[in-house]
Design a protein around this nucleic acid. Sequence first.
RNA 1: GGCGGUAUAGCCAAGUGGUAAGGCGACGGUCUGCAAAACCGUUAUUCUCCGGUUCAAAUCCGGAUGCCGCCUCCA
Length: 449
Amino acid sequence: MLKIYNTLTKKLENFEPVSKDNIVRLYSCGMTVQDSPHIGHIRALITVDIVKRILILNGFKTYSVYNFTDIDDKLIIKMKESGVDYRIISQKNIDKFFDVFKSLNVLDFDVYPRATLHIEEIIDLIERLMDKGYAYKSKDDVYFRVNSFKNYGALSGKNIDELVEGKRIELNENKENPLDFVLWKGVKEDEPFWYSPFGKGRPGWHIECSAMSMKYLGETFDIHTGGQDLIFPHHENEIAQSECATEKKFVKYWIHNGMVNLKGEKMSKSLGNVYGAKELLNRYSPNVIRLFLLKTHYRKDIEFSVERLDESQSAYKRLIENIPKNDEEKIDEKLFFDFIDALNDDFNTPQAIGILFETVNRINLKQNDENILKNTLSKMFSSLGFKMEEKNERKDDLSKTLIEILLDVRDRLKKEKLYDMADSIRERLNENKIIVNDLKDGAVWKIED
RNA sequence: GGCGGUAUAGCCAAGUGGUAAGGCGACGGUCUGCAAAACCGUUAUUCUCCGGUUCAAAUCCGGAUGCCGCCUCCA
């Protein structure tokens, strides 16, 4: 039985899907595409990926949505600064996202909707809210009336009265209540806009997620994921908008992943301390990054560092040694069951990875069930979304031959006990990223990753 | 100030009542002319601190302290 920690109830709950059709519907809050993806986005992505994979292991089918918020204040600021149209900036970042996405071996989502392509749905939703008295027009903007939703604060555990006293509420004389949030922003000079019954303007943050999730997943769906930093106000506002419009429960399970911190600080665009996804992928393989992330439980913050990644790389090397190339059928059912059991406990990937390494240790002890263990390891490996990497053979036949000749010469030198010369050949090859290891039956070589 | 989370070995990290998984590192060993790689072994009498409950506590209860996130755009 799959158990999920639900942010809404703050409890571990048994997972039971909303619909009887065996399809689990998920919505992931994606990027606001004013900037390139970073390690934090990767973590969120790997988290949903694991959620989906484990649902599938439990016999469910999934239908999932990953959205792009491709119009917002920051994008407009960037446009004004650079003189480049916001659509070009956002498209560039969406392209970058898909580059990263593809290399990570993440399961495809079924839909990747964009806010600007759902203006109609957004307007409809705002109209529904206005008709019911949950939203009001003030000057050129439309706001959501927070006081009209009695459950406001349920997800984030916040109390409306305390929020009002908080020091960080933005002052805006158009609002009835400082907590009210904008659904539709009236156009200002030199800004992109769309026509609507409430005047020219553009959607506020929050509303696009409600409109798009409802469109593709229905008014009530199973799982909504995102980073912990989205709990308030973004997800809180999504619930308010959606539930007021439909008068139905919006989402059954809310899953939030922890942050990736850098030097004790959250990595974020505003702090300017982000570590780019692309940079990272140039330096580490997708599997190493995946291992680095899955070694820590998804709800816990991770302290980002190159040392941690190097550590994961060392561990990964040991793991990969024992993954057979061809998947065979026969596995150790008990072992695999333990593995699933760990994952079914709120996606406990650290424990599952522990089982992987215990299996590696057993394989290395060369017991008689070695092959079965290897097959099981392979199945666990791919269940977690790791993918056997194709070694890119950057060596052509000629250099291969030359290296073989050199090693042959070196072998003869060794036999003559001319170790200085033999070692010098090894060193010079080494300097050129050709690693030579003398094993029992002769030397082997490989090109350094 | 409010809300939430967290504290486990040198470092990272599981474990929520039955006597501390796993990884990295370090050290020792096998192999080796040497090195490297690979493999084997060792590495927390104890879980931030102080009380309490229990036959039994890292785990439950009360209290203290530290760290982090959110309360403003954020994955």
